[in-house]
Design a binder for these strands. Structure first.
Lengths: 295, 295
DNA sequence: GTCAACCCATACGTCTTCGGTATGCCTATG
DNA sequence: CATAGGCATACCGAAGACGTATGGGTTGAC
């Protein structure tokens, strides 16, 4: 059956007259009459009582009218919903983020998103350095807030900010009494490290920093996340070199100190699949930029 | 928008390929491809990602798919519902009945209807002699169980049975000791009468019966229904001449006796609007005949 | 009682649109 | 580099929809 016919049927049922309905539909009366009869032929039963004063629904017609009206509304709603999703007025965006950024960014980012893209369902997924690439590629997340950026031919990157590396240590450590720690003071001290560069690019930035200053820090432990690193630091296992924003998630007893002669930083970036053309991505990017700019 | 296109869209979305969907729809691939592009033009946004391995819904497409599927199902359901109503497999029938018949007929009629036309909603409305005609004509009820039949050019009648007139009296009445009361014994006794013939045809049957036997019964009271009549009879106001079936609704203390030399009866009939072509009417009629035959 | 008005149904010509066939383009694969 | 698989484009024939003209039946007024 044809939605066109159903629309005509509804119009005639509402107007209780072929002529009136034709007028409302801006068409001639005869073709409308024909369409109604075709619909009746398809159903196999009369849908209207033909009186001398117009048309009146039969019970079969009433049964059809209810559903036809709903079907029309649903179809129209479907088209409109598709347009809304395409325009980014509705939809769903799944946001991946690395846990180090959570405390610094999410509390400001979430309200910003709700204000900027109301009607869009938000999903937040925390990513580890090793899974974030896969989650983007398999569309587990639409965008990812990364530190540092992902490099992959399928993935588009927008750098939205950077974080200075800082030294994290227990507040009882002697170095904690210095305002900014000279790099030389790190020589030979134990390091609580993140996964090796092939699994976490942050590590290679740290390694490059140390290499450039000819510092060797023996690796006391390797952990998966900045938070685990801070736990071990608090336990006295060693020092950690972490982006400044990690401070916001640090447990009591940890202090962060800048490195005096190292301006090294690690990028904060928004990453997404190059072929993902969701109109929500530019909007998300704008929000993220705004929030990160105020860090 | 056209339901045809939505159907094609759903097929392609499910097959995740234009070619496969075309095969399933038993049509060639190119026209299907064209229809999908037309739908996309109508929406104003792509609904599929074209990959080298087939088609994949965009988010806008997913939003449309859900509603399109429901719209299709609703439209199909609407057609089917109209067919079912036309065939009498579903629908609603509003049954009017006169209260005298209620106790005798309804307890058997209702289960019979539920068995015979399951899926049909039943509505029961009690009618008085004066309103039954109007209720049929204004479609307040689809059919009416009447006693006696209605005579009206717009109303079709099927006689399904008859009820002998009987004499109703208090059990303490001297006539109650007789098995069958001779008509002559009614001479001069007070009558509890129903509304006059112009409002209730049953009265004219009673009047005819009395006239034929040259009996005069002064009218003690006029009441609207057989039940009211029985109340007054119990109170000693007089006698009532009622159809046998009224006995089933009689209060304790009322007895019914046949009239020895009068075989007069009053018809039980099913009545409906001549232009009402509900397929449920013949089915209802069959049930009513079956039930009344066993009275 | 007849005539006009109203409303739906039918007939026919025109035009839109749909579906089929043939073919091209792109990409992945061996 | 050649082949295969998949979607897009071009063109043609056929079906269906719309418009105009007209018929038939009923209501209501003069």
């Amino acid at each position: 059956m044809d939605l066109h016919r159903l629309r005509y049927f509804v119009a005639v049922a509402e107007a209780r007259s072929v002529g009136k309905a034709a007028e409302r539909l801006r068409m001639a009366q005869p073709p409308l009459s024909v369409q109604i009869r075709k619909l009746e032929a398809e159903v196999g039963a009369p849908l209207f009582h033909r009186g001398t004063r117009g048309m009146d629904l039969t019970e079969a017609g009433q049964a059809l009218l209810v559903r036809a009206g709903e079907a029309l509304a649903l179809a129209a709603d479907g088209i409109e919903a598709a347009r809304a999703v395409a325009a980014g007025r509705r939809g769903r965006i799944s946001v991946g983020y690395m846990f180090v950024l959570a405390n610094a960014v999410l509390p400001r980012l979430i309200p910003e998103l709700r204000r900027s893209i109301p009607g869009v369902d938000l999903d937040f997924v925390d990513l580890s350095a090793s899974t974030r690439e896969a989650r983007l590629l398999d569309r587990g997340v639409t965008v990812a807030l990364c530190m540092p950026a992902i490099h992959h031919p399928e993935i588009q990157v927008a750098r939205i900010g950077a974080q200075r590396f800082m030294l994290a240590m227990p507040n009882r450590s002697p170095l904690a009494r210095i305002g900014a720690v000279p790099m030389a003071r790190l020589q030979g001290r134990p390091l609580v490290a993140l996964p090796p560069p092939e699994r976490d690019p942050a590590s290679s930035a740290v390694a490059a920093l140390l290499r450039r200053h000819q510092i060797v820090m023996p690796i006391a432990s390797r952990v998966e996340t900045a938070h685990s690193a801070m736990s071990l630091v608090l336990a006295g296992e060693g020092f950690a070199i972490l982006p400044a924003c990690a401070k916001l998630g640090a447990p009591r007893g940890i202090v962060f100190r800048p490195l005096r002669d190292a301006a090294d930083s690690i990028d904060i970036a928004v990453c997404w699949r190059r072929d993902s053309q969701s109109p929500l991505i530019p909007k998300f990017l704008k929000c993220a930029e705004k929030v990160v700019a105020r860090l």
